[in-house]
Design a protein around this nucleic acid. Structure first.
Lengths: 341, 341
DNA sequence: AAAATATTTGGAAACGGTTCATTGACCGGC
DNA sequence: GCCGGTCAATGAACCGTTTCCAAATATTTT
C-alpha cells in the first residue's frame, strides 16, 4: 500500500489492509476485550507494516478529552519554580498526560490570555500562579475556568485547589532568629504584595517583631518587584542610609543574587558587615562563603501535591470541595548571620 | 439559549443565534474579508453573548495543523537549559504557537517514547536534545520524524537543523588559560561523551595541550555523567591522589556545584589550593568568593535561533537544506585561578 | 436596461477517530 | 430441529471546525 501524497495513514487504511472494519481497528487500539486473537494479530501486523500512528487530535475530538495539562508560571528560569514544575511534569507524563508550559512574566494580561488559550485548546486541567490574588478579573477568570485548576503558591481564592508553602511561618522563623541575635534594623525584601507569598512574609516578619514586643519599621520593608535589578538597586540604596540595616532578609525566592551583587559592589562582607538570610535555598546560598542561612521547603513535594490534586479532579476521583495544601518551611542556619556590632 | 448539559457552545449555536450559516461564523472567526460589517457584528454579538470559545481541537482536526511546538530537554531544573527554553517559548507564544515541554532525564527510551507521543499529537515542530548522537535508533527516529525538528546543542546529525554552542573553542580557551598560568595536571569533567558538548570539550582540551607541545593525561579526564553526585564523587577521589590536579575544569553546564561541594568538604580553598574554571556561567560562579572564572555564551540567542529556525520550517518559509548554527563561547576571567604552587 | 462581473452567503463534505445499534456465527439445551 | 443467548465484527453516525461549490445579491460595464 502506498501513502497518498502528504497524507498519513489512518485507521481506515489499517482496516483495509487487515481486511476488517474500522471499528475493529479502534477496538484493537484501545485494548477492548471482544477481539479474537486472530483478528487482533492481523490488525497489529497491518499497523506495524504501515507504520500507522494514531492521531491524538481526532481522538480528542471525539472523546472530548485532550490528555493535556497546562501550566503557567511566572518565569522559566527561576530555579525555585522550575523544581515544582519538574516534578509535576514527571507525574503527568507517567499518567499519560502531556504537559504544556508557558511563562507569564507575572503579567495579568498574559495570564488572562493564556487561560483563554488553554480553554480553547480544551486542556484537561491547569496548574498556575497568578500575579494578583485580589484582582477581580483574575479571580473571575480562575473561578469560571471550565477545567479543573490548581493554584501554585497562592492561597486566597478559596473556590479552587491550592498548594502553597507556609511562608508566614518561614518569615517568622527567619526574623525570630535575626532578632535573637540582637538585630533590630532588619531589612525585608519581598515581591509584589498582591500575591500570597509576599503578603505572608510581611505578616510573619511582623509577627516576630510583635512577639518580641517590638514594632517593625516600615522604612525597612521593600515590597515591589521580584526582579534582581530591583533587589540590587534597593539593597544599594538601603545600605547607604545613615542608619543602614544590620541584617537583610531577602525573602523572595530568587532575590539573593541581586542582594549579593549589591553588597559586593559596596564592599560589604556578608556575616561581618551585614547579616543575610535568604528566603529560598539554592546552590548559591549553600556554597557561598560564608554559606547563607536560608529558608527551605520540599519543592518536589509541592509539585507532587499539585499534580496529584489536579489528576484527582481531572479523572473525577475527587469531587470534594477545593482545598489548600500547605507545605512546611524551615530555617537552615549557616554562617551568614552574626550579632550586630 | 441554554447550554445543553455538559456541552459547550459550538459554531452551530453561534450560527443559529446570529441567524447565519456556520460557514459565515467560521469566516468571521478567521477574519475572512468577504463578510459585511452588519453580519460580522451580528456574529460577534452572538459570540460574546453566548461566551463561545473556539475549539482548537476541531480546528486542528480539519486544518491538519496543531499550532503546537514540542520541546524535550534533559532536565527542567538545569538553569543553563532553561534559559534556551525560556526564550524559545517567548518567541513561539508571540507567533501564536503553544509550547509543550517534557524532560527526558537523558534517557534514550524516554526520548524515543516522547518522539512518538509528539508524532501522535501531530505537533507542528520539535525542539530537543538527545542523549547519544551516534545511536542508530535515535538517529533514525530523529531523521524519520514527520515534523520539522531542531536539535539543541547537538551537531552530528547533519540531516536536521541544529543550534550548538562552540564548546570546542570554549574548552580550548579555558585550557589555554590554565596552561598559561603554569598548570599541567588539569582535571577535566564532562558529561556523556556520546553527545556533542562533551566530545567537543575533550577535543578543545586536547587541542590546547597539543598546541603547547604537551600531551593530555587521560587519567585527568572524567567523562561519564552530568550529575552533581558524580562530580562530587570524582572530584573527591581525584583530590586524594598522590598527584592531585592543580586545576579543575568542570566543563559540564551544571557541574560546578558538585565540585565546589567536594572541595569544601575536603577543606580545599579555590584559588589558593586549586584553580577552578566552570564550563557554564551562573550566579553561583559570579558571586562565589573567590568568583569563579567561567565560560559563557548567549543562551537566549541560542533559544532564539532554535525557535526561529523551527518556525521557518513549520511555516514553510525555508526549504533550504538543514544547517547548524554555532554560537560563540568566551572565557570570563575572574578570581578562581592562580599559578600552581 | 440588460448583461457581465464581483461579492457575499448558504450548505454540505471532509478531517480521523470512537461508539453503538445491528447483523451474523456459533453453541448448548430442550 | 428450533430457540435463546453469547460473543465478534460491521458500518454508519457523530464530534466541531474549515473549505469549496453553488446560489443569491450587489455592482459595474456596455
Amino acid at each position: 500500500m502506498v501513502r497518498k501524497a502528504g497524507r498519513e495513514f489512518t485507521i481506515r487504511d489499517v482496516a483495509r489492509s487487515a481486511e476488517v472494519a474500522v471499528g475493529t481497528v479502534s477496538r484493537v487500539l484501545n485494548d477492548h476485550p471482544s477481539v479474537t486473537r486472530d483478528v487482533r494479530e492481523r490488525v497489529q501486523r497491518a499497523i506495524t507494516s504501515l507504520g500507522y500512528e494514531r492521531n491524538a487530535v481526532a481522538q480528542s475530538m471525539r472523546s472530548a478529552r485532550t490528555h493535556m495539562i497546562a501550566c503557567a508560571i511566572r518565569d522559566f528560569d527561576i530555579p525555585g519554580y522550575v523544581s515544582y514544575v519538574k516534578e509535576a511534569e514527571r507525574i503527568f507524563r507517567a499518567a499519560d498526560y502531556t504537559f504544556l508550559l508557558a511563562s507569564t512574566a507575572n503579567d495579568k494580561a498574559v495570564e488572562l490570555s493564556l487561560l483563554r488559550k488553554f480553554a480553547q485548546r480544551r486542556v484537561d486541567g491547569v496548574m498556575m500562579t497568578i500575579s494578583d490574588e485580589s484582582d477581580p478579573e483574575l479571580i473571575a477568570a480562575v473561578e469560571q475556568a471550565k477545567m479543573p485548576l490548581v493554584l501554585i503558591d497562592r492561597e486566597m481564592i478559596q473556590s479552587v485547589d491550592r498548594v502553597a508553602a507556609d511562608h508566614r511561618s518561614g518569615a517568622r522563623q527567619a526574623t525570630d532568629y535575626l532578632l535573637s541575635l540582637g538585630h533590630r534594623r532588619i531589612a525585608l525584601f519581598v515581591g509584589d504584595p498582591h500575591a500570597h507569598p509576599s503578603r505572608s512574609r510581611i505578616e510573619g516578619y511582623g509577627d516576630a517583631f510583635r512577639a518580641a514586643g517590638l514594632e517593625p519599621d516600615p522604612a525597612m520593608i521593600r515590597d515591589h518587584s521580584l526582579s534582581n535589578e530591583f533587589t540590587f538597586r534597593e539593597t544599594s540604596a538601603l545600605m547607604q542610609r545613615p542608619d543602614p540595616p544590620t541584617a537583610i532578609f531577602v525573602a523572595g525566592i530568587d532575590m539573593l543574587a541581586g542582594a549579593m551583587r549589591a553588597l559586593k559592589a559596596a564592599g560589604l562582607a556578608i556575616g561581618r558587615d551585614v547579616s543575610v538570610v535568604s528566603g529560598g535555598d539554592s546552590d548559591l546560598a549553600e556554597l557561598s562563603t560564608p554559606a547563607i542561612t536560608a529558608l527551605q521547603w520540599d519543592r518536589a513535594q509541592m509539585g507532587r501535591h499539585a499534580a496529584q490534586m489536579l489528576l484527582d479532579r481531572v479523572t473525577g476521583r475527587t469531587t470534594e470541595p477545593p482545598r489548600c495544601v500547605r507545605v512546611p518551611v524551615s530555617l537552615v542556619v549557616r554562617e551568614s548571620c552574626r550579632p550586630p556590632q
